[in-house]
Design a binder for these strands. Structure first.
Lengths: 146, 146
DNA sequence: CGGGCTATTTTTAGCTT
DNA sequence: TAAGCTAAAAATAGCCC
């Protein structure tokens, strides 16, 4: 029973936290399915438990929605601007992991020598490039799955 | 009031569908925030309304979760296999859009000449490549956001 | 552990403005 | 068109097994 109004804060007990994660994740997926069905929308939910397990659901598929998201965040294909309404973070206690990929793909760029306009241009170019590469690779992957 | 039990099916009336989409999307985001807070998990929700508007929420950020998802679906970095528990699709009425990107990045591959082993190898190579490119580009993008 | 129960809180469909 | 209201439906915390 939810006798007492539950406070939305981190659950310290590991077992209890996992139980709640499982239950609420199922609830979240159910809600997502209902949204998709009732509103004829596309949606994806991706969750990582503290243990590192991945759970994802998406309609038409997680990859489809993710690719559409990536495409949209770099959408300047034909000058169309698709505004992304991104929800603000609730609190500032997040620990954002640092990117530590030391491998190089030969894409070094002299950022220091650039002005703001050039940086913005680079940002758009990179996002566009990312979209193209992701699209292309996904195309190759799906054609090899026949 | 929800006097009558609502059937989870497509809402035909456009205005009503949009209202429901808005309300349920807000509910979904709230649930996601609660899951993140209570279970110390990472999660992202991406939705596209029928009108084409994008709404996304993620902790630590949508991009962070999406990148982690992409990395995981191609994770063979050090031989670790991270299982993705992907929910099955509920129904077979989905219309999956065909990829029609005719632009080339010079990545043409002679698929027909390949055997199954080579196709699987290509699949892993492509996913790995996708991860590296996405990581690299995101690295460049975030360093230009300083 | 994972599944079932249920009291209570939370969500939300339909309404009103 | 969007923003409240409210009663009924749905989700779920704590417990049992």
């Amino acid at each position: 029973m939810v006798r007492t109004k539950v406070e939305i804060k981190r659950i310290e007990d590991k077992a209890k936290r996992h139980t709640t994660f499982t239950k609420r994740r199922q609830g979240l997926f159910k809600k997502t399915k209902e949204l998709v069905k009732r509103c004829d929308a596309e949606a994806a939910v991706i969750t990582f438990s503290l243990a590192g397990n991945i759970f994802a659901f998406g309609h038409p598929s997680v990859d489809n929605v993710v690719n559409r998201y990536i495409a949209s965040t770099s959408a300047l294909e034909h000058g169309e601007v698709v505004p992304v309404h991104e929800e603000a973070e609730m609190e500032r206690d997040a620990v954002i992991g640092t990117m530590e990929n030391e491998e190089t793909l030969g894409l070094e760029v002299p950022l220091d020598d650039m002005g703001m306009d050039e940086l913005e241009e680079l940002d758009r170019t990179m996002k566009e490039m990312k979209k193209k590469v992701v699209d292309k690779i996904d195309g190759i992957i799906s054609s090899s799955k026949t």
